[in-house]
Amino acid sequence: MPTTRNRDVSLYYEADGDGPTVVFINDVGYGAWLWGWHYDAVAGPYETVVWDLRGTGRSDAPAGPYDVETLTADLEAVLADHGVGSAHLVGAGLGGMVALKYAHQYNRARSLTLYCTAGSGDAVDREKLDSLALDAPSSLEGAFSPAFRDHDPDLMEQIAGWRAEEDATGEARAAQAGAMTGFDSPPLYEITQPAEVYYGLNDPVVKSDAAQSLAADLPRGTGEAVEGRHCCYIEYAPAVTDRLLAFLDEQTD
Rank of each mutant, 00 (worst) to 15 (best):
S111M: 08
G17D: 10
V84I: 12
A177E: 01
Y236V: 06
G119H: 06
D16F: 04
D67N: 13
H151N: 15
G200S: 00
C116I: 02
T21E: 03
R5G: 07
D152N: 14
G96T: 06
F247H: 15
P2N: 12
T72H: 03
A63K: 11
L94T: 08
G121Q: 03
W51V: 13
T192I: 13
D40P: 06
K101D: 14
R58T: 12
Q105L: 10
H104F: 15
G142S: 05
A63N: 12
L11I: 15
A99C: 11
D167Q: 07
L94N: 08
Y236I: 04
A239Y: 09
F148M: 10
P137Q: 09
D184G: 14
A77V: 10
A246S: 14
F144G: 01
A168W: 00
P137N: 13
G200R: 01
P186G: 08
A123N: 06
G55T: 07
A123Y: 02
G85W: 10
V28T: 14
H230L: 10
A118G: 09
A77I: 08
A225H: 01
D152V: 05
R110L: 14
A61H: 04
S139H: 15
R7A: 14
G170N: 09
L112Q: 00
G36D: 11
D135Y: 03
A136H: 11
T21Q: 07
P2C: 13
R54F: 09
D125T: 02
A237E: 12
R126H: 01
T241E: 04
W162K: 13
P146I: 01
G93L: 02
L214F: 12
T192P: 04
R5W: 09
D152C: 02
K128Q: 15
E171L: 07
S213P: 00
T192D: 07
H230C: 10
N6I: 04
D8R: 06
L100S: 03
R126N: 01
A210P: 05
N202S: 15
K207Q: 11
V78R: 01
V23L: 06
V49A: 09
K128I: 02
R229C: 05
T48K: 08
A80W: 10
T181D: 04
V22P: 08
Y66C: 13
A225L: 07
G19H: 02
Y198A: 04
V98W: 10
T192N: 10
A15I: 10
L140Y: 11
F247I: 09
H82K: 05
D52F: 00
V42D: 14
P187A: 07
S139Q: 09
A133F: 15
P62F: 00
G64T: 08
Q212N: 13
Q251E: 12
G85V: 13
G182H: 01
A41W: 02
A136W: 11
R108M: 07
S10W: 04
V197K: 00
P2W: 09
Y236E: 15
A143P: 00
Y189S: 12
L79G: 07
L248Q: 08
D27P: 12
P65N: 11
Y115I: 06
L155Y: 14
V98F: 09
E157G: 14
E171H: 07
A143R: 08
S139F: 12
G93T: 05
Y115M: 13
S59I: 03
T113H: 07
V49E: 11
